[in-house]
Design a protein around this nucleic acid. Structure first.
Lengths: 146, 146
DNA sequence: TTTTGTGCAAATCGTTTGCACCGTT
DNA sequence: AACGGTGCAAACGATTTGCACAAAA
Protein backbone atom coordinates (compact mmCIF):
# COMPACT_ATOMS: atom_id res chain seq x y z
CA UNK A 1 0.00 0.00 0.00
CA UNK A 2 2.92 2.32 0.75
CA UNK A 3 4.20 1.47 -2.71
CA UNK A 4 0.92 2.46 -4.27
CA UNK A 5 1.17 5.93 -2.78
CA UNK A 6 4.87 6.30 -3.48
CA UNK A 7 4.47 5.19 -7.07
CA UNK A 8 1.76 7.78 -7.49
CA UNK A 9 4.11 10.46 -6.19
CA UNK A 10 2.19 11.05 -2.98
CA UNK A 11 3.75 11.33 0.41
CA UNK A 12 2.93 8.50 2.72
CA UNK A 13 0.92 9.83 5.62
CA UNK A 14 -1.16 8.12 8.24
CA UNK A 15 -4.39 9.54 6.81
CA UNK A 16 -3.63 8.57 3.24
CA UNK A 17 -2.66 5.08 4.30
CA UNK A 18 -5.91 4.73 6.20
CA UNK A 19 -7.93 5.93 3.22
CA UNK A 20 -6.00 3.77 0.77
CA UNK A 21 -6.60 0.75 2.97
CA UNK A 22 -10.32 1.39 3.07
CA UNK A 23 -10.43 1.85 -0.68
CA UNK A 24 -8.17 -0.88 -1.96
CA UNK A 25 -8.31 -3.65 0.59
CA UNK A 26 -11.67 -5.11 -0.30
CA UNK A 27 -11.59 -5.22 -4.09
CA UNK A 28 -13.64 -2.94 -6.28
CA UNK A 29 -15.43 -0.14 -4.47
CA UNK A 30 -17.71 2.80 -5.25
CA UNK A 31 -17.63 5.58 -2.70
CA UNK A 32 -18.60 9.15 -2.00
CA UNK A 33 -16.56 11.42 0.24
CA UNK A 34 -19.28 11.42 2.88
CA UNK A 35 -19.66 7.66 2.74
CA UNK A 36 -15.96 7.10 3.15
CA UNK A 37 -15.86 9.58 6.00
CA UNK A 38 -18.60 7.70 7.80
CA UNK A 39 -16.70 4.49 7.28
CA UNK A 40 -13.42 5.95 8.50
CA UNK A 41 -15.00 7.52 11.56
CA UNK A 42 -15.33 4.26 13.43
CA UNK A 43 -11.53 4.05 13.57
CA UNK A 44 -9.58 5.98 16.24
CA UNK A 45 -8.12 9.28 15.00
CA UNK A 46 -9.93 9.26 11.68
CA UNK A 47 -9.09 11.79 8.95
CA UNK A 48 -11.22 14.90 8.81
CA UNK A 49 -13.89 15.28 6.17
CA UNK A 50 -11.81 17.91 4.39
CA UNK A 51 -8.91 15.51 4.21
CA UNK A 52 -11.15 12.82 2.76
CA UNK A 53 -12.25 15.23 0.05
CA UNK A 54 -8.72 16.39 -0.65
CA UNK A 55 -7.34 12.88 -0.64
CA UNK A 56 -9.97 11.53 -2.99
CA UNK A 57 -9.23 14.37 -5.37
CA UNK A 58 -5.48 13.73 -5.11
CA UNK A 59 -6.03 10.03 -5.72
CA UNK A 60 -8.19 10.82 -8.74
CA UNK A 61 -5.56 13.20 -10.12
CA UNK A 62 -2.94 10.50 -9.79
CA UNK A 63 -5.14 7.89 -11.36
CA UNK A 64 -5.61 5.72 -8.28
CA UNK A 65 -9.36 6.17 -8.43
CA UNK A 66 -11.69 7.48 -11.08
CA UNK A 67 -14.58 9.85 -10.88
CA UNK A 68 -17.85 8.45 -12.14
CA UNK A 69 -20.31 10.32 -14.33
CA UNK A 70 -23.60 10.38 -12.46
CA UNK A 71 -26.72 12.46 -12.05
CA UNK A 72 -26.23 15.68 -10.07
CA UNK A 73 -25.68 15.49 -6.34
CA UNK A 74 -22.61 13.86 -4.91
CA UNK A 75 -19.44 12.86 -6.64
CA UNK A 76 -18.70 9.14 -6.76
CA UNK A 77 -15.29 7.54 -7.07
CA UNK A 78 -14.48 4.07 -8.28
CA UNK A 79 -11.38 2.10 -7.44
CA UNK A 80 -11.57 0.46 -10.83
CA UNK A 81 -9.94 3.00 -13.09
CA UNK A 82 -10.76 1.63 -16.50
CA UNK A 83 -13.85 2.45 -18.55
CA UNK A 84 -16.96 2.32 -16.41
CA UNK A 85 -20.22 0.52 -16.76
CA UNK A 86 -22.64 0.82 -13.91
CA UNK A 87 -26.13 0.17 -12.81
CA UNK A 88 -27.46 3.05 -10.78
CA UNK A 89 -30.37 2.54 -8.44
CA UNK A 90 -31.66 6.04 -8.07
CA UNK A 91 -34.07 5.62 -5.18
CA UNK A 92 -31.45 3.92 -3.03
CA UNK A 93 -28.44 5.86 -4.28
CA UNK A 94 -26.70 2.59 -4.98
CA UNK A 95 -24.18 1.97 -7.68
CA UNK A 96 -22.84 -1.35 -8.83
CA UNK A 97 -20.85 -2.79 -11.67
CA UNK A 98 -22.22 -4.37 -14.74
CA UNK A 99 -20.25 -7.51 -15.50
CA UNK A 100 -17.82 -6.70 -18.24
CA UNK A 101 -19.06 -9.65 -20.27
CA UNK A 102 -22.34 -7.84 -20.82
CA UNK A 103 -20.72 -4.77 -22.26
CA UNK A 104 -20.66 -4.22 -25.98
CA UNK A 105 -17.42 -3.05 -27.50
CA UNK A 106 -17.02 0.62 -28.30
CA UNK A 107 -15.41 1.53 -31.56
CA UNK A 108 -16.31 5.16 -31.49
CA UNK A 109 -13.54 7.26 -33.01
CA UNK A 110 -12.52 10.44 -31.23
CA UNK A 111 -13.02 13.68 -33.17
CA UNK A 112 -9.91 15.12 -34.80
CA UNK A 113 -7.35 16.51 -32.37
CA UNK A 114 -8.89 14.67 -29.44
CA UNK A 115 -8.34 11.51 -27.54
CA UNK A 116 -10.76 9.49 -25.50
CA UNK A 117 -9.94 10.06 -21.86
CA UNK A 118 -12.61 7.82 -20.44
CA UNK A 119 -15.90 6.12 -21.08
CA UNK A 120 -18.77 6.04 -18.63
CA UNK A 121 -21.90 4.05 -19.09
CA UNK A 122 -24.68 4.44 -16.57
CA UNK A 123 -27.84 2.41 -16.75
CA UNK A 124 -30.42 3.93 -14.46
CA UNK A 125 -32.73 1.42 -12.86
CA UNK A 126 -36.15 1.73 -11.35
CA UNK A 127 -37.69 -0.78 -9.07
CA UNK A 128 -40.81 -2.38 -10.40
CA UNK A 129 -43.70 -1.58 -8.07
CA UNK A 130 -44.59 -5.24 -7.57
CA UNK A 131 -42.06 -5.15 -4.76
CA UNK A 132 -42.15 -8.77 -3.63
CA UNK A 133 -38.62 -9.43 -4.74
CA UNK A 134 -36.08 -8.89 -2.01
CA UNK A 135 -33.37 -8.20 -4.48
CA UNK A 136 -29.76 -8.30 -3.63
CA UNK A 137 -27.65 -6.33 -6.06
CA UNK A 138 -26.25 -9.51 -7.51
CA UNK A 139 -29.28 -11.57 -8.39
CA UNK A 140 -29.54 -10.24 -11.87
CA UNK A 141 -31.38 -12.17 -14.49
CA UNK A 142 -28.88 -13.55 -16.90
CA UNK A 143 -31.33 -15.67 -18.83
CA UNK A 144 -32.59 -12.85 -21.00
CA UNK A 145 -29.17 -12.17 -22.39
CA UNK A 146 -29.10 -12.62 -26.18
CA UNK B 1 -45.42 25.34 -27.83
CA UNK B 2 -48.49 26.10 -25.69
CA UNK B 3 -49.65 22.58 -26.51
CA UNK B 4 -46.39 21.11 -25.31
CA UNK B 5 -46.87 22.69 -21.90
CA UNK B 6 -50.56 21.90 -21.69
CA UNK B 7 -50.04 18.30 -22.68
CA UNK B 8 -47.44 18.02 -19.96
CA UNK B 9 -49.97 19.34 -17.43
CA UNK B 10 -48.15 22.60 -16.86
CA UNK B 11 -49.80 25.98 -16.77
CA UNK B 12 -48.90 28.22 -19.62
CA UNK B 13 -47.02 31.21 -18.27
CA UNK B 14 -44.89 33.82 -19.91
CA UNK B 15 -41.74 32.51 -18.29
CA UNK B 16 -42.36 28.90 -19.18
CA UNK B 17 -43.14 29.85 -22.75
CA UNK B 18 -39.92 31.79 -22.98
CA UNK B 19 -37.91 28.89 -21.58
CA UNK B 20 -39.65 26.34 -23.77
CA UNK B 21 -38.94 28.49 -26.82
CA UNK B 22 -35.27 28.69 -25.98
CA UNK B 23 -35.11 24.96 -25.42
CA UNK B 24 -37.19 23.56 -28.22
CA UNK B 25 -36.95 26.06 -31.05
CA UNK B 26 -33.50 25.21 -32.31
CA UNK B 27 -33.49 21.42 -32.34
CA UNK B 28 -31.51 19.33 -29.87
CA UNK B 29 -29.92 21.25 -27.03
CA UNK B 30 -27.76 20.62 -23.96
CA UNK B 31 -28.07 23.21 -21.23
CA UNK B 32 -27.31 24.01 -17.64
CA UNK B 33 -29.52 26.25 -15.56
CA UNK B 34 -26.86 28.95 -15.47
CA UNK B 35 -26.28 28.74 -19.20
CA UNK B 36 -29.96 29.04 -19.98
CA UNK B 37 -30.25 31.94 -17.58
CA UNK B 38 -27.44 33.77 -19.34
CA UNK B 39 -29.15 33.13 -22.63
CA UNK B 40 -32.52 34.30 -21.39
CA UNK B 41 -31.10 37.41 -19.82
CA UNK B 42 -30.63 39.21 -23.11
CA UNK B 43 -34.41 39.26 -23.51
CA UNK B 44 -36.50 41.96 -21.78
CA UNK B 45 -38.12 40.78 -18.52
CA UNK B 46 -36.26 37.48 -18.36
CA UNK B 47 -37.18 34.80 -15.82
CA UNK B 48 -35.21 34.79 -12.60
CA UNK B 49 -32.52 32.21 -12.00
CA UNK B 50 -34.70 30.45 -9.44
CA UNK B 51 -37.48 30.15 -12.00
CA UNK B 52 -35.07 28.68 -14.52
CA UNK B 53 -34.04 26.07 -11.98
CA UNK B 54 -37.62 25.32 -11.00
CA UNK B 55 -38.80 25.20 -14.58
CA UNK B 56 -36.04 22.88 -15.72
CA UNK B 57 -36.88 20.57 -12.85
CA UNK B 58 -40.58 20.72 -13.71
CA UNK B 59 -39.81 20.02 -17.35
CA UNK B 60 -37.64 17.08 -16.38
CA UNK B 61 -40.35 15.69 -14.10
CA UNK B 62 -42.83 15.88 -16.96
CA UNK B 63 -40.45 14.30 -19.40
CA UNK B 64 -39.93 17.32 -21.63
CA UNK B 65 -36.20 17.28 -20.96
CA UNK B 66 -33.87 14.71 -19.46
CA UNK B 67 -31.12 15.04 -16.95
CA UNK B 68 -27.72 13.86 -18.14
CA UNK B 69 -25.26 11.82 -16.10
CA UNK B 70 -22.03 13.83 -15.94
CA UNK B 71 -19.06 14.44 -13.71
CA UNK B 72 -19.75 16.43 -10.54
CA UNK B 73 -20.50 20.12 -10.77
CA UNK B 74 -23.50 21.34 -12.65
CA UNK B 75 -26.58 19.50 -13.77
CA UNK B 76 -27.11 19.27 -17.52
CA UNK B 77 -30.40 18.84 -19.31
CA UNK B 78 -30.99 17.53 -22.79
CA UNK B 79 -34.01 18.22 -24.95
CA UNK B 80 -33.62 14.80 -26.47
CA UNK B 81 -35.30 12.53 -23.95
CA UNK B 82 -34.25 9.10 -25.18
CA UNK B 83 -31.11 7.22 -24.19
CA UNK B 84 -28.08 9.46 -24.22
CA UNK B 85 -24.72 9.22 -25.89
CA UNK B 86 -22.44 12.18 -25.51
CA UNK B 87 -18.98 13.44 -26.03
CA UNK B 88 -17.87 15.59 -23.10
CA UNK B 89 -15.05 18.05 -23.53
CA UNK B 90 -13.93 18.56 -19.99
CA UNK B 91 -11.64 21.55 -20.36
CA UNK B 92 -14.30 23.56 -22.19
CA UNK B 93 -17.32 22.18 -20.38
CA UNK B 94 -18.89 21.33 -23.70
CA UNK B 95 -21.25 18.50 -24.38
CA UNK B 96 -22.36 17.23 -27.76
CA UNK B 97 -24.12 14.27 -29.26
CA UNK B 98 -22.49 11.24 -30.67
CA UNK B 99 -24.19 10.31 -33.92
CA UNK B 100 -26.51 7.43 -33.17
CA UNK B 101 -25.01 5.42 -35.98
CA UNK B 102 -21.79 5.11 -34.00
CA UNK B 103 -23.48 3.64 -30.98
CA UNK B 104 -23.32 -0.09 -30.36
CA UNK B 105 -26.53 -1.77 -29.33
CA UNK B 106 -27.12 -2.49 -25.69
CA UNK B 107 -28.68 -5.75 -24.77
CA UNK B 108 -28.00 -5.57 -21.09
CA UNK B 109 -30.84 -7.12 -19.12
CA UNK B 110 -32.12 -5.38 -16.02
CA UNK B 111 -31.68 -7.22 -12.75
CA UNK B 112 -34.75 -9.04 -11.50
CA UNK B 113 -37.50 -6.75 -10.26
CA UNK B 114 -36.05 -3.74 -12.04
CA UNK B 115 -36.56 -1.91 -15.23
CA UNK B 116 -34.13 0.21 -17.16
CA UNK B 117 -35.17 3.82 -16.71
CA UNK B 118 -32.47 5.30 -18.88
CA UNK B 119 -29.07 4.81 -20.37
CA UNK B 120 -26.33 7.40 -20.38
CA UNK B 121 -23.09 7.06 -22.21
CA UNK B 122 -20.45 9.71 -21.74
CA UNK B 123 -17.17 9.64 -23.61
CA UNK B 124 -14.80 12.07 -22.02
CA UNK B 125 -12.44 13.74 -24.45
CA UNK B 126 -9.09 15.41 -23.99
CA UNK B 127 -7.50 17.72 -26.45
CA UNK B 128 -4.25 16.50 -27.87
CA UNK B 129 -1.46 18.95 -27.10
CA UNK B 130 -0.32 19.07 -30.71
CA UNK B 131 0.04 22.34 -32.54
CA UNK B 132 -2.87 21.68 -34.84
CA UNK B 133 -5.14 23.69 -32.62
CA UNK B 134 -3.89 27.18 -32.01
CA UNK B 135 -5.94 28.49 -29.15
CA UNK B 136 -4.46 28.86 -25.73
CA UNK B 137 -6.66 27.71 -22.83
CA UNK B 138 -8.01 31.15 -22.11
CA UNK B 139 -8.59 32.77 -25.46
CA UNK B 140 -11.82 31.09 -26.28
CA UNK B 141 -14.14 33.10 -28.41
CA UNK B 142 -17.61 33.03 -27.03
CA UNK B 143 -19.03 35.56 -29.43
CA UNK B 144 -18.53 33.66 -32.64
CA UNK B 145 -20.72 30.74 -31.77
CA UNK B 146 -23.12 29.68 -34.51
C1' DT C 1 14.91 22.65 7.68
C1' DT C 2 12.31 22.76 3.92
C1' DT C 3 8.31 21.12 1.96
C1' DT C 4 3.97 19.11 1.96
C1' DG C 5 -0.23 17.46 4.40
C1' DT C 6 -3.84 18.10 7.89
C1' DG C 7 -7.66 20.03 10.45
C1' DC C 8 -10.74 23.35 11.42
C1' DA C 9 -13.79 26.87 10.21
C1' DA C 10 -15.11 29.99 6.89
C1' DA C 11 -15.95 30.58 2.07
C1' DT C 12 -17.81 29.16 -2.29
C1' DC C 13 -20.66 26.98 -5.70
C1' DG C 14 -24.76 25.08 -7.52
C1' DT C 15 -29.33 24.47 -6.26
C1' DT C 16 -33.63 24.67 -3.41
C1' DT C 17 -36.99 26.89 -0.51
C1' DG C 18 -40.00 30.27 2.32
C1' DC C 19 -42.76 33.78 1.66
C1' DA C 20 -45.25 37.73 -0.24
C1' DC C 21 -47.11 38.99 -4.51
C1' DC C 22 -48.86 38.27 -9.19
C1' DG C 23 -50.96 35.70 -13.20
C1' DT C 24 -53.85 31.88 -14.89
C1' DT C 25 -57.88 29.20 -14.57
C1' DA D 1 -61.82 33.56 -5.84
C1' DA D 2 -58.71 29.83 -5.77
C1' DC D 3 -54.80 27.92 -7.08
C1' DG D 4 -50.45 27.68 -8.82
C1' DG D 5 -46.28 30.29 -10.47
C1' DT D 6 -42.69 33.80 -9.84
C1' DG D 7 -39.03 36.52 -7.74
C1' DC D 8 -36.14 37.64 -4.29
C1' DA D 9 -33.23 36.57 -0.65
C1' DA D 10 -32.11 33.43 2.64
C1' DA D 11 -31.17 28.51 3.38
C1' DC D 12 -28.97 24.45 2.01
C1' DG D 13 -25.80 20.54 0.88
C1' DA D 14 -21.62 19.31 -1.22
C1' DT D 15 -17.12 20.67 -1.90
C1' DT D 16 -13.05 23.81 -1.59
C1' DT D 17 -9.93 26.88 0.59
C1' DG D 18 -7.08 29.97 3.96
C1' DC D 19 -4.42 29.57 7.57
C1' DA D 20 -1.88 27.85 11.63
C1' DC D 21 0.07 23.73 13.08
C1' DA D 22 2.14 19.01 12.46
C1' DA D 23 4.51 15.51 9.96
C1' DA D 24 7.48 13.73 6.11
C1' DA D 25 11.57 14.28 3.26
Amino acid sequence: MRDKLEQAGLRVTRQRMMIANLLFAKGDRHVTAEGLYAEASVIPYPPSLATIYNTLRDFADKGLVREIALYGGKVWFDTQTGPHFHFYLEDREELFDIPESMIPSFDIPAPAGMRIAGIDVVIKLERLPEGMILDAPDNRDKSAHP
